[in-house]
Amino acid sequence: MTNCLTWQGRVASYVDAELPCPEMEAFRAHLATCPDCAATTLALMESKMAVRRAGNRYAAPPELRAKVLSLAKDEPAVARGAIGGDRARFRTIVPRYWTGWAIVTAALLLLAAGLFLAANRRQNAKAVAEFADLHVTALASANPVEVVSTDRHTVKPWFQGRIPFTFDLPDLQATPYTLVGGRVAYFHQEPGAHLIFGYQRHLISVFIFRDTPQVAMPASFFADNTSSFTLRTWTQQGLRYVILGDANAAAIANLMELLQRAR
Protein backbone atom coordinates (compact mmCIF):
# COMPACT_ATOMS: atom_id res chain seq x y z
CA MET A 1 0.00 0.00 0.00
CA THR A 2 1.35 3.41 -0.93
CA ASN A 3 1.95 5.52 2.15
CA CYS A 4 1.14 9.16 2.68
CA LEU A 5 4.70 10.37 2.19
CA THR A 6 4.80 8.80 -1.26
CA TRP A 7 1.50 10.43 -2.20
CA GLN A 8 2.70 13.83 -1.03
CA GLY A 9 5.46 13.58 -3.61
CA ARG A 10 2.88 13.01 -6.34
CA VAL A 11 0.48 15.80 -5.52
CA ALA A 12 1.89 18.06 -8.23
CA SER A 13 1.67 15.32 -10.83
CA TYR A 14 -1.93 14.68 -9.81
CA VAL A 15 -2.89 18.35 -9.99
CA ASP A 16 -1.11 18.69 -13.34
CA ALA A 17 -3.04 15.62 -14.58
CA GLU A 18 0.19 13.76 -15.22
CA LEU A 19 -0.42 10.60 -13.21
CA PRO A 20 -1.34 7.47 -15.18
CA CYS A 21 -5.04 6.53 -14.94
CA PRO A 22 -4.72 3.76 -12.33
CA GLU A 23 -2.64 6.02 -10.10
CA MET A 24 -5.13 8.86 -10.52
CA GLU A 25 -7.88 6.58 -9.25
CA ALA A 26 -5.73 5.36 -6.37
CA PHE A 27 -4.79 8.93 -5.50
CA ARG A 28 -8.46 9.99 -5.48
CA ALA A 29 -9.28 7.09 -3.18
CA HIS A 30 -6.45 8.13 -0.86
CA LEU A 31 -7.71 11.74 -0.82
CA ALA A 32 -11.07 10.56 0.44
CA THR A 33 -9.43 9.09 3.52
CA CYS A 34 -6.53 11.47 4.19
CA PRO A 35 -7.33 15.06 5.26
CA ASP A 36 -3.66 16.09 5.09
CA CYS A 37 -3.21 15.02 1.49
CA ALA A 38 -6.62 16.46 0.59
CA ALA A 39 -5.64 19.83 2.09
CA THR A 40 -2.31 19.79 0.28
CA THR A 41 -3.96 18.90 -3.01
CA LEU A 42 -6.61 21.55 -2.59
CA ALA A 43 -3.97 24.18 -1.82
CA LEU A 44 -2.01 23.32 -4.95
CA MET A 45 -5.14 23.32 -7.11
CA GLU A 46 -6.09 26.75 -5.84
CA SER A 47 -2.55 28.00 -6.36
CA LYS A 48 -2.50 26.65 -9.90
CA MET A 49 -5.77 28.46 -10.62
CA ALA A 50 -4.39 31.66 -9.13
CA VAL A 51 -1.28 31.44 -11.32
CA ARG A 52 -3.41 30.78 -14.38
CA ARG A 53 -5.50 33.88 -13.69
CA ALA A 54 -2.46 36.04 -12.99
CA GLY A 55 -0.50 34.62 -15.91
CA ASN A 56 -3.11 35.60 -18.47
CA ARG A 57 -1.92 39.16 -18.16
CA TYR A 58 -1.09 40.59 -21.55
CA ALA A 59 -3.39 41.13 -24.52
CA ALA A 60 -1.77 41.48 -27.91
CA PRO A 61 -2.36 44.83 -29.62
CA PRO A 62 -4.63 44.56 -32.69
CA GLU A 63 -1.94 46.19 -34.84
CA LEU A 64 0.39 43.31 -34.09
CA ARG A 65 -2.19 40.79 -35.25
CA ALA A 66 -2.56 42.79 -38.47
CA LYS A 67 1.22 42.86 -38.90
CA VAL A 68 1.49 39.11 -38.42
CA LEU A 69 -1.28 38.54 -40.93
CA SER A 70 0.45 40.85 -43.37
CA LEU A 71 3.52 38.62 -43.24
CA ALA A 72 1.55 36.48 -45.62
CA LYS A 73 1.91 39.15 -48.24
CA ASP A 74 5.56 39.90 -47.69
CA GLU A 75 7.23 36.65 -46.76
CA PRO A 76 8.11 33.85 -49.15
CA ALA A 77 6.58 30.51 -48.36
CA VAL A 78 7.84 27.03 -48.73
CA ALA A 79 5.01 24.81 -49.82
CA ARG A 80 4.74 21.36 -48.29
CA GLY A 81 6.68 18.70 -50.16
CA ALA A 82 3.71 16.47 -50.81
CA ILE A 83 1.37 19.11 -52.03
CA GLY A 84 3.63 21.95 -53.00
CA GLY A 85 6.71 22.79 -54.88
CA ASP A 86 9.02 25.75 -55.07
CA ARG A 87 9.18 28.85 -52.94
CA ALA A 88 6.35 31.18 -53.69
CA ARG A 89 5.06 34.53 -52.61
CA PHE A 90 2.27 34.33 -50.04
CA ARG A 91 0.30 36.93 -51.86
CA THR A 92 -0.67 34.09 -54.14
CA ILE A 93 -3.13 33.08 -51.44
CA VAL A 94 -5.55 34.94 -53.66
CA PRO A 95 -5.16 33.73 -57.22
CA ARG A 96 -4.20 36.62 -59.45
CA TYR A 97 -6.84 35.90 -62.03
CA TRP A 98 -9.46 36.29 -59.30
CA THR A 99 -8.28 39.55 -57.91
CA GLY A 100 -11.65 41.22 -57.86
CA TRP A 101 -12.17 43.36 -54.80
CA ALA A 102 -15.28 41.44 -53.93
CA ILE A 103 -13.35 38.20 -53.58
CA VAL A 104 -10.59 39.83 -51.58
CA THR A 105 -13.11 41.43 -49.27
CA ALA A 106 -15.00 38.19 -48.84
CA ALA A 107 -11.76 36.35 -48.06
CA LEU A 108 -10.78 38.94 -45.48
CA LEU A 109 -14.21 38.77 -43.88
CA LEU A 110 -14.02 35.00 -43.70
CA LEU A 111 -10.54 35.22 -42.25
CA ALA A 112 -11.65 37.73 -39.63
CA ALA A 113 -14.65 35.57 -38.77
CA GLY A 114 -12.42 32.52 -38.47
CA LEU A 115 -9.99 34.31 -36.20
CA PHE A 116 -12.84 35.66 -34.10
CA LEU A 117 -14.32 32.18 -33.71
CA ALA A 118 -10.94 30.69 -32.89
CA ALA A 119 -10.31 33.34 -30.23
CA ASN A 120 -13.80 32.78 -28.83
CA ARG A 121 -13.29 29.02 -28.69
CA ARG A 122 -10.06 29.50 -26.78
CA GLN A 123 -11.63 31.92 -24.33
CA ASN A 124 -14.57 29.59 -23.81
CA ALA A 125 -12.30 26.62 -23.19
CA LYS A 126 -10.45 28.60 -20.53
CA ALA A 127 -13.69 29.67 -18.87
CA VAL A 128 -14.87 26.05 -18.80
CA ALA A 129 -11.57 24.97 -17.26
CA GLU A 130 -11.82 27.67 -14.60
CA PHE A 131 -15.37 26.69 -13.64
CA ALA A 132 -14.33 23.03 -13.55
CA ASP A 133 -11.47 23.98 -11.25
CA LEU A 134 -13.83 25.90 -8.95
CA HIS A 135 -16.12 22.86 -8.85
CA VAL A 136 -13.31 20.39 -8.16
CA THR A 137 -11.56 22.50 -5.56
CA ALA A 138 -14.81 23.08 -3.70
CA LEU A 139 -15.58 19.37 -3.62
CA ALA A 140 -12.04 18.52 -2.55
CA SER A 141 -12.33 20.96 0.32
CA ALA A 142 -13.06 19.76 3.84
CA ASN A 143 -15.88 22.34 3.88
CA PRO A 144 -17.32 22.50 0.36
CA VAL A 145 -20.06 24.91 1.41
CA GLU A 146 -20.10 27.84 3.82
CA VAL A 147 -23.84 27.73 4.39
CA VAL A 148 -25.02 24.18 4.92
CA SER A 149 -28.75 23.90 4.39
CA THR A 150 -31.27 22.13 2.24
CA ASP A 151 -33.68 25.00 2.70
CA ARG A 152 -33.67 27.55 -0.11
CA HIS A 153 -35.10 30.11 2.30
CA THR A 154 -31.95 29.76 4.38
CA VAL A 155 -29.39 29.58 1.59
CA LYS A 156 -30.65 32.52 -0.47
CA PRO A 157 -30.70 35.07 2.39
CA TRP A 158 -27.22 33.95 3.47
CA PHE A 159 -25.81 35.55 0.31
CA GLN A 160 -27.27 38.97 1.17
CA GLY A 161 -24.40 41.40 1.68
CA ARG A 162 -21.91 38.87 0.38
CA ILE A 163 -22.62 39.22 -3.34
CA PRO A 164 -23.86 42.28 -5.25
CA PHE A 165 -27.12 40.71 -6.53
CA THR A 166 -29.90 38.36 -5.56
CA PHE A 167 -31.37 35.34 -7.29
CA ASP A 168 -34.21 32.85 -7.04
CA LEU A 169 -33.97 29.21 -6.09
CA PRO A 170 -36.45 26.54 -7.15
CA ASP A 171 -38.61 24.44 -4.86
CA LEU A 172 -36.96 21.03 -5.05
CA GLN A 173 -39.67 19.02 -3.34
CA ALA A 174 -40.81 16.13 -5.54
CA THR A 175 -37.64 16.38 -7.60
CA PRO A 176 -34.58 14.11 -7.45
CA TYR A 177 -32.40 17.08 -6.51
CA THR A 178 -31.40 18.31 -3.07
CA LEU A 179 -29.79 21.58 -2.12
CA VAL A 180 -26.56 20.91 -0.22
CA GLY A 181 -25.55 24.50 0.45
CA GLY A 182 -23.62 27.42 -0.95
CA ARG A 183 -20.48 29.47 -0.80
CA VAL A 184 -19.13 32.67 -2.28
CA ALA A 185 -16.98 32.09 -5.36
CA TYR A 186 -14.82 34.44 -7.37
CA PHE A 187 -14.49 34.35 -11.14
CA HIS A 188 -12.11 36.89 -12.60
CA GLN A 189 -12.32 38.82 -9.32
CA GLU A 190 -16.12 39.03 -9.61
CA PRO A 191 -17.96 37.67 -6.54
CA GLY A 192 -20.83 35.29 -7.17
CA ALA A 193 -22.86 32.46 -5.70
CA HIS A 194 -21.64 28.88 -5.85
CA LEU A 195 -24.48 26.51 -5.00
CA ILE A 196 -24.06 22.77 -4.68
CA PHE A 197 -26.92 20.43 -5.46
CA GLY A 198 -27.10 16.70 -4.89
CA TYR A 199 -28.43 14.33 -7.53
CA GLN A 200 -28.29 10.65 -6.63
CA ARG A 201 -24.61 10.28 -5.66
CA HIS A 202 -23.45 13.21 -7.80
CA LEU A 203 -22.74 16.75 -6.68
CA ILE A 204 -23.56 19.46 -9.18
CA SER A 205 -22.26 23.02 -8.99
CA VAL A 206 -24.37 25.99 -10.01
CA PHE A 207 -22.48 29.27 -10.35
CA ILE A 208 -24.34 32.57 -10.56
CA PHE A 209 -22.51 35.76 -11.47
CA ARG A 210 -23.49 39.09 -12.87
CA ASP A 211 -23.39 38.85 -16.66
CA THR A 212 -20.40 41.12 -17.19
CA PRO A 213 -17.77 41.02 -19.93
CA GLN A 214 -15.40 39.35 -17.43
CA VAL A 215 -17.75 36.37 -17.35
CA ALA A 216 -18.03 36.29 -21.13
CA MET A 217 -19.30 32.90 -22.22
CA PRO A 218 -21.51 31.73 -25.05
CA ALA A 219 -25.23 31.79 -24.41
CA SER A 220 -25.63 28.30 -25.78
CA PHE A 221 -24.98 24.91 -24.26
CA PHE A 222 -21.66 23.21 -24.55
CA ALA A 223 -20.00 20.31 -22.79
CA ASP A 224 -16.40 20.00 -21.79
CA ASN A 225 -15.67 16.47 -22.92
CA THR A 226 -11.98 16.67 -22.05
CA SER A 227 -12.66 16.65 -18.34
CA SER A 228 -15.81 14.51 -18.46
CA PHE A 229 -17.97 17.26 -17.04
CA THR A 230 -21.22 18.41 -18.53
CA LEU A 231 -21.66 22.15 -18.52
CA ARG A 232 -24.63 24.32 -19.36
CA THR A 233 -24.80 28.05 -19.23
CA TRP A 234 -27.37 30.74 -19.88
CA THR A 235 -28.23 34.29 -18.94
CA GLN A 236 -31.35 35.35 -17.13
CA GLN A 237 -32.30 38.76 -15.76
CA GLY A 238 -28.77 40.09 -16.08
CA LEU A 239 -27.22 37.07 -14.38
CA ARG A 240 -24.99 34.40 -15.84
CA TYR A 241 -25.78 30.86 -14.71
CA VAL A 242 -23.32 28.01 -15.14
CA ILE A 243 -24.17 24.42 -14.17
CA LEU A 244 -21.36 21.92 -14.08
CA GLY A 245 -21.11 18.39 -12.82
CA ASP A 246 -20.35 14.80 -13.65
CA ALA A 247 -24.02 13.76 -13.67
CA ASN A 248 -25.54 12.83 -17.00
CA ALA A 249 -26.53 15.54 -19.44
CA ALA A 250 -30.27 14.99 -18.88
CA ALA A 251 -29.91 15.52 -15.12
CA ILE A 252 -27.99 18.73 -15.72
CA ALA A 253 -30.61 19.89 -18.24
CA ASN A 254 -33.49 19.19 -15.85
CA LEU A 255 -31.82 21.16 -13.07
CA MET A 256 -31.28 23.97 -15.54
CA GLU A 257 -35.01 24.05 -16.31
CA LEU A 258 -35.87 24.12 -12.61
CA LEU A 259 -33.56 27.06 -12.07
CA GLN A 260 -34.94 28.89 -15.09
CA ARG A 261 -38.47 28.52 -13.76
CA ALA A 262 -37.57 29.49 -10.18
CA ARG A 263 -39.58 32.39 -8.81
Binding site: L64, A77, A118
Partner: peptide, 22 residues
Protein backbone atom coordinates in the same frame (compact mmCIF):
# COMPACT_ATOMS: atom_id res chain seq x y z
CA UNK B 1 -0.58 24.02 -53.36
CA UNK B 2 0.80 27.32 -52.06
CA UNK B 3 -2.68 28.37 -51.01
CA UNK B 4 -3.16 25.09 -49.20
CA UNK B 5 0.18 25.43 -47.46
CA UNK B 6 -0.46 28.96 -46.26
CA UNK B 7 -4.00 28.13 -45.27
CA UNK B 8 -2.80 25.21 -43.21
CA UNK B 9 -0.19 27.31 -41.46
CA UNK B 10 -2.67 30.05 -40.71
CA UNK B 11 -5.23 27.55 -39.43
CA UNK B 12 -2.70 26.10 -37.02
CA UNK B 13 -0.79 29.22 -36.03
CA UNK B 14 -3.28 32.04 -35.58
CA UNK B 15 -5.21 30.46 -32.69
CA UNK B 16 -1.88 30.50 -30.82
CA UNK B 17 -1.28 34.20 -31.46
CA UNK B 18 -2.63 35.50 -28.12
CA UNK B 19 -0.86 32.83 -26.08
CA UNK B 20 2.41 33.44 -27.87
CA UNK B 21 2.19 37.17 -27.25
CA UNK B 22 1.36 36.68 -23.57
Amino acid sequence: AETASYGEFERLAMPLFDSLYN
